[in-house]
Design a protein around this nucleic acid. Structure first.
Ligand SMILES: [Mn+2]
Ligand SMILES: [Mn+2]
Ligand SMILES: [Zn+2]
Ligand SMILES: [Zn+2]
Lengths: 137, 137
DNA sequence: AATCAAATTAAAACGATTCTAAACTGTTGA
DNA sequence: TCAACAGTTTAGAATCGTTTTAATTTGATT
């Protein structure tokens, strides 16, 4: 008997862990996202990767899935311009280089930047995240 | 004889300094932007301020003017979300609090954040800017 | 005042993203 | 095994901030 690939098993378990029904589309997108190393995608780039891999999935589902994965903590959003939304498979605390020409991101480990004297959050506000973007030309 | 207000003179000189023809619309927008303290606007908020002040100007001209002022160095853009573009009358080196609920920004002086061990720009790239966004909820 | 480049504008177009509502599918329990 | 149903997918329409178009108006120059 034929075993499922370990990739499929990994994606399946990941979906189960966050209580998302493992549909054909979500399994395929999870493999594209999580079975390669950490990387950054937009809805369009992930949709194109799916097409290239022969996965039949609509752009609407790609958007739905990216948001569901983000809400589940499997992805995070990175805001670098108003043109499009980037999603990051690396959900650890880290920062980014942004290559403005190419529109690509590269990770900077949090330990590699030392931020001191971070101001207190004013009055009743709480800090939800600190983003450092180093823009490159 | 009646003198022009110092506000108008300030706006006029500012436009002349960057070689932008001082039209009625650009003078009025320059006053709204630069004669009050430093602040952050979107095209919509500035358009609304103009309406409220009785300035007749189209939204297209507000967009044109914001981009021209930015290209001239009178404004800078701040990217905090994909929903809309913020323009900042403070063009000195500084960072931002972003109140995610309200969609408003507050300045953090560059001297108040101490960033050490900023990674080198990879290979042939040059750092064009370092943005720190502290997101508040 | 005549001229002409520059600027303004209403309206249309654009494009990333979201919404709608109909079809489909995974899960469950009889 | 399979009916039932909630959850999911999808094509296509809608949304909305922003940009473009192309016609009109205006500011500067002579
Ligand atoms: Mn989102
Ligand atoms: Mn712009
Ligand atoms: Zn990253
Ligand atoms: Zn600012």
């Amino acid at each position: 008997m034929e075993l499922q690939s370990t990739d499929t098993i990994g994606a399946l378990e990941r979906l189960r862990a966050v209580k998302l029904r493992p549909t054909r589309q979500r399994l395929a997108l999870a493999q594209l996202l999580f079975d390669t190393g950490d990387h950054h995608v937009t809805a369009e780039t992930l949709y194109d990767q799916a097409q290239a891999a022969g996965v039949r999935v609509s752009l609407a589902t790609v958007y739905n899935t990216l948001h569901q994965f983000t809400a589940a903590g499997l992805l995070r959003e990175v805001v670098v311009n108003s043109a499009c939304t980037y999603f990051d498979t690396n959900v650890t605390d880290h920062h980014h280089f942004f290559y403005e020409d190419r529109g690509t991101l590269a990770d900077i480990d949090s330990a590699d930047i030392d931020i001191r004297g971070l101001p207190e959050a004013p009055d009743g506000a709480k800090i939800s995240r600190v983003d450092v973007i180093i823009r490159l030309t």
